[in-house]
Computed example of a mutant assay.
Amino acid sequence: MKLECVREQLTEAVSITERIAKRHPTLPILNYLLLSVKNNSLVIRSTNLELGIEATIPVKATSEGIVAVPAEILLNTLINTYNTSVSLEVKGNTFSLKTPTSETLITTVSPDDFPTLPTITTKPLRFNEGDFLKGIKSVWYSASLSTVKPELGSVYVYPEGNKLVFVATDSFRLAERIIPTKQPYEFKPFLLPVRAVPEVLRVLERTRGDMTVRVGEHQISFIFNDLYLTSRTVEGTFPDYRQIIPKEKATEVVLLKQDLLLIFKKAMVFSGKFNQVGITVYPKKKQFIISAKSDIGETTDTVTAAIMGEDVTINFNLKYLTDCFQAITGDSVSLTFNGSGKPMVIRDVSDTSFLYLVMPMNR
């Protein structure tokens, strides 16, 4: 293998793929990047057996080949190399990275044991990258971090006519985002594991336009111009969550998002080890009260809001309440209640495509 390429392009490709390469006690090859050169293209691959990624950049190759190079060492070398172009060459088990002013030699290993990435042959689906990114980011924080119920540690994605629906829940709260599409989609609903989401988001955030998605039996792939990302999907059945979303409301409060967030931030200081905050609504008095109390003290705020319905007093985990605001872009939010002991629903007043449901605390 011998080639020349632009250092900036190579550094970006290695940076994207290096994050997936992790230390593995029984499979040390997973600490490496697989570099292969063919037809003046350099393909850089990494995998942790659950996620896999390939990045492709154009190069000027004088000979083709394949090599496995330590991921972290290669990235650190490139980050601290300042020339515009670099030359790469493999001689025996040594990988050479040259610039006009420097040369770095890195010991390689045999690429024979490097895992292949799965190829999914199902019907390709064209999605807008921005829509998919918005759907995932709106809900993934609500997924469970526990591995006891893998289906709850996932983002559930399914088609519904001319809409894509993204849902996540840990059984204490639930987030749903509905994305309108220009055309109806037909594909098998899938569960994307939450541990794969950060890398999927990172790739989506660096791209623009459309992408190709293929949904297989146990795998999903995302294909861009210069990137191929694949992930395992979770086996299991997502709960029938629609049955727990209240169809009616006994009490509704509409107020400015920033006013609510400011009070929540203060309440967090006094919410104690259980992050408990109390909400009391008196529609006749037009009072919406937020309070928190712990060993260090207590705080109470009455917020200006539009209120209708019945009186209600209820406690929530404050962290769960604040998590959803990253998905709300409007100026005002709606909080609806159906009495004590029942879930609260938070919506963006200006965008009904997002719904967030929070279960109350018992104590």
Rank of each mutant, 00 (worst) to 15 (best):
N93P: 07
T122A: 02
N39W: 08
G153D: 07
S146P: 02
S46V: 03
P118R: 05
G216V: 06
Q258C: 09
S87Q: 12
E64L: 04
I245L: 02
L262K: 14
F222E: 09
T181H: 01
G236D: 06
I346C: 05
K273E: 15
R23Q: 15
S36T: 15
L51W: 01
S63R: 10
L145F: 09
N48F: 06
D112Y: 13
V333S: 01
V215R: 05
E89N: 15
T108L: 01
V37Q: 08
M359D: 01
G216M: 05
V253G: 00
T302P: 05
V37H: 07
G278D: 13
S353H: 12
P58R: 09
N93D: 14
I223P: 10
S36C: 13
V215T: 05
G130M: 13
F270G: 09
I289D: 00
P28K: 07
D170K: 04
Y156G: 02
E103K: 15
E129I: 15
D259M: 09
K134I: 10
G135Q: 00
T237W: 11
N317V: 04
Q258H: 13
L255S: 03
A327N: 03
E176H: 02
R7L: 03
T300Y: 00
P124M: 04
I178S: 09
K342F: 09
W140A: 09
Q243R: 14
Q276D: 15
F238H: 07
L255Y: 03
D259Y: 10
R208T: 15
V90A: 10
P58W: 09
L260N: 02
Q183R: 13
A13E: 04
V215P: 00
I179Q: 08
I223Q: 14
S46F: 05
D240Y: 06
N162K: 14
S231W: 01
P28D: 02
E103D: 13
K285Y: 13
L42M: 09
M211N: 09
L262A: 14
L33P: 03
P100G: 06
F172A: 08
D295W: 10
F270C: 08
